[in-house]
């Protein structure tokens, strides 16, 4: 059984937002509202001239014990094959319990206004058709076609590495098992499948 995961290499992320542009247009997300499935944080620490700067890409952690899935009253938030957490936009009633439950702030509301705007911005075949809480789905539709997630495929810094954590020969599995890649805030106990090389 596959267990998909992602490793983010902070050492080579250039903060360019190519991933954000790819994700936005892959999933027709509402950039006009400032909402994205993935974004890049710019972390600056210290005082001039002893100051450091890092770019930290953020997205849904696809936790194995995902609080968003357990609190969802309608089952809209659920797991699919490969351990990917998705939201069914038709079933979601927009109660936002998942947003409160998510410790990684990985979700946002795709509201009715966004839905009508999306038709203008992306054209009549827009993929987002009803208001819902939205988040990263590891581009599972691309995976079915044998493609990598859009953010991974385009990253000019090769800072995003994707694969099957259950396949010990995969690069993601090796980076995680060697301890080179670690989860953010593992103490929360949700068992993220997204890891970081710092």
């Amino acid at each position: 059984m596959k267990r998909y995961g992602m490793v983010l290499n902070v050492k080579t992320c250039l903060g360019c937002q190519a991933c954000v542009a790819a994700c936005t247009q892959q999933h027709d997300t509402p950039f006009w509202s400032g909402n994205y499935r993935t974004h890049v944080e710019n972390v600056v620490i210290g005082e001039f001239p002893d100051v450091s700067r890092e770019f930290v890409p953020r997205l849904c952690m696809h936790c194995e014990d995902a609080p968003c899935v357990s609190v969802c009253p309608t089952g809209a938030s659920h797991y699919i094959e490969g351990g990917i957490v998705v939201v069914d936009q038709e079933t979601c009633m927009g109660c936002k319990a998942c947003m409160l439950a998510c410790p990684y702030d990985a979700r946002y509301v795709y509201d009715a206004g966004d839905i009508s705007r999306a038709r203008i911005v992306y054209g009549p075949d827009v993929q987002q058709t009803s208001a819902h809480v939205d988040k990263c789905d590891f581009c599972y539709e691309r995976l079915e076609e044998g493609l990598e997630p859009a953010c991974v495929a385009t990253c000019p810094g090769e800072a995003r590495i994707f694969g099957d954590l259950n396949d010990q020969a995969s690069r993601v599995a090796q980076l995680v098992s060697s301890g080179e890649a670690v989860p953010l805030a593992p103490e929360l106990g949700t068992k993220p499948k997204v890891f970081y090389i710092r």
Binding site: A18, A21, A22, Q26, G123, A153, T154, P156
Partner: peptide
């Protein structure tokens, strides 16, 4: 024909299938 998404061209020896945010926003 209407563009829906722009990706890097894997055949190009320069960018090797990758593309920055500007390039993806061309449409």
């Amino acid at each position: 024909r209407r563009a829906v998404k722009i990706d890097g061209n894997g055949a190009d020896p320069f960018n090797q299938g990758r593309l920055c945010p500007r390039g993806q926003s061309g449409l």
